[in-house]
Design a protein around this nucleic acid. Structure first.
Lengths: 209, 209
DNA sequence: CGGATATTTGACCCTGCTCAACTGGCGTGG
DNA sequence: CCACGCCAGTTGAGCAGGGTCAAATATCCG
């Protein structure tokens, strides 16, 4: 939401976040809201010791920490940098005060939240009804849409297999087996942390069963 | 959100909805937003011919159709009355215009949407990681919280088993088997369309594994 | 009363998770 | 320089949760 920034420019405070660093952790007290200027984050929710679900990703111009606007005084999710990032921080009290006064800003936030909710509902349905292979295919399509590709055609994000599996709602091992299958079918290849989609149409076909 | 109504009272238009009737269907053009005055609804998303996921329920004072505020011009979900209901309808254009002007109203909607999003994220995680038995237990706890109980201690809603299973993200048949188990353990009984929770603590225990 | 539609149960089996073994670097120290 | 251990990545075997299908039973209605 880059268009929001001008209205808030006076009060913004930028700072850097190192790769792997957490902007905030699930369960921490809410104290502010963030806008990504540079880099990317995963927004995730813990299940047990070594299991989580990645809810979404955030990149330049995206907002992070809006969940702090709800009833809860604690963040219900964590935000972790996937790569070195720069964010702009706003004190929550100030942001809320601004919202109450600036209806145009509030209206933009409403549209943003409605879209987030829509995505979230779709994910719920997919987690309930889609087989794993289709969910994994969908995860790659989603990454492709969100991050686009670089000059060489790789999806423009570096992401671990662990994270991909958490995003698709499955295990590391299952991701592997499906990944080999995809490679063999000439649909996509994952070398290191770089994803190359060979056949987007076929990938889409896998999603649709 | 009953406190919203005064501000909008001039333009509201009430009407009745019969049991089983759909306020709107997934894929239909968005034309307005609704506030439940009486009765209850399920908000659901279709998967295939005979499979859906119930996203949430709505009852007195709840808002329905806010998803129409997003990018999309079509409702991404359906809303179906579980019992005879009365809703208040607002033309979407008017509602949006009001939002842009009335920051206090907009702020309340933001808080509402943030809470919805939080619930939705929690559901995503649960669908991904919870075993079915725990999800079903959670579904009953959730119904209990939302609808409360009547004088006789039954959860104050009439709901089909089909709908319960769609809410828990499982099948009709699996719901049955788990239900028998619950009854045998003296946790809850489901007679007809009436749910009676015998042991809420034990039910909570099942959720936590 | 008969057919249709909803419940209930049982048998089966497949997806995908768990666990553990195997591989291949890579750093460390002998 | 090689041997050893260690960790991440990779693969396979085994198994069980839970979905599918169909049969058996009950309920509803014309």
């Amino acid at each position: 939401m880059p268009e929001w920034l001008p209205a808030l420019a006076v009060h913004k405070r930028n700072f850097e976040v190192k790769k792997g660093e957490q902007l905030f952790k699930e369960g921490e007290a809410v104290d502010g809201i963030f806008f990504v200027q540079k880099g990317s984050f995963k927004i995730h929710k813990r299940w047990d010791k070594d299991k989580e679900l990645i809810i979404r990703f955030a990149r330049s111009a995206d907002i992070i920490g809006h969940m702090g606007l709800g009833k809860k005084l604690l963040y219900p999710v964590s935000a972790t940098a996937l790569e070195p990032a720069v964010v702009c921080y706003l004190d929550m009290a100030f942001f809320e005060a601004t919202l109450k006064v600036n209806a145009e800003l509030a209206y933009m936030l409403i549209r943003f939240l409605a879209n987030e909710l829509d995505d979230s509902h779709r994910s719920m349905r997919d987690l309930a009804h889609m087989p794993v292979k289709a969910r994994i295919a969908q995860a790659f399509i989603s990454l492709h849409q969100q991050f686009g590709v670089d000059e060489q055609g790789f999806i423009d994000v570096e992401i671990s297999r662990q994270d991909i599996s958490s995003y698709a709602g499955t295990t590391y091992e299952t991701l592997f087996k499906v990944l080999n299958e995809f490679a063999k079918q000439g649909v996509l290849t994952l070398t290191g942390r770089k994803i190359f989609i060979t056949d987007l149409v076929k990938l889409q076909g896998i999603v649709n069963g």
